[in-house]
Design a binder for these strands. Sequence first.
DNA 1: TTGCGTTATGCTCAACCATGCATTACGCTT
DNA 2: AAGCGTAATGCATGGTTGAGCATAACGCAA
Lengths: 113, 113
Amino acid sequence: MKESYRLHGRVWIEGPEGTFLGYGRVVLLERIRDHGSITAAARSMEMSYRHAWKLVDSMNRQSRKPVVNKSTGGRGGGGAVLTETGEQAIECFWSAHRDFKNFLAEHSKQIDL
Amino acid sequence: MKESYRLHGRVWIEGPEGTFLGYGRVVLLERIRDHGSITAAARSMEMSYRHAWKLVDSMNRQSRKPVVNKSTGGRGGGGAVLTETGEQAIECFWSAHRDFKNFLAEHSKQIDL
DNA sequence: TTGCGTTATGCTCAACCATGCATTACGCTT
DNA sequence: AAGCGTAATGCATGGTTGAGCATAACGCAA
């Protein structure tokens, strides 16, 4: 009997103001690291800059030390750089996320309906 | 150091058409069992009858055997009764949900930021 | 036959969220 | 001084979701 039912779900890290790190936010951080700007990062994942900026702002506000350093003006107009703290945040989330995926796979087998 | 960050999340059972069983749906099933009608169940949890009906319909469509038996007209105008299959569905979800709660609590301790 | 309470279903409205656009601030480069 | 690309931010728009209202169908009771 094939599994016609599967356990799905989502996890995120909650901070003082609500969501601190979720799947989309972490991917955004990675894109910022790879592209060097919020603009390019947002575009690469088909997210509006407006929204991306708000997410970064939310993460920075809730983190003791900034997750992303933003600069305006200058050489290429400015940009955004992932900090060491941001790198750790990514690691931390993926770790929990990986365990969660295993959790879901394991429990999907136990569904008998 | 107090846990200023905690892992949160949601789980649900996915069926052929998408969500089959989630937290709200299971609570709805329990209320139907306790009240004997979709109307009363919906009211008891401050949900519109419109929405509650759609959820029940969705669950019945995706289940091999109906989760709720509905009848129109008659003694009290009709009503809704939770089936044995529905009872098992509730059990199945709470089981996964309970394990998930433990998972979240356990991993919340491991967040170091 | 009339009345009642529930299921069943369509339609409109409000809230929320993200998109998209417009505009300003910024600081290096030329 | 002028230009460039990005951060920063307000405002209008569109899509989705559930609430709320209106109405019909149903079947038993009085």
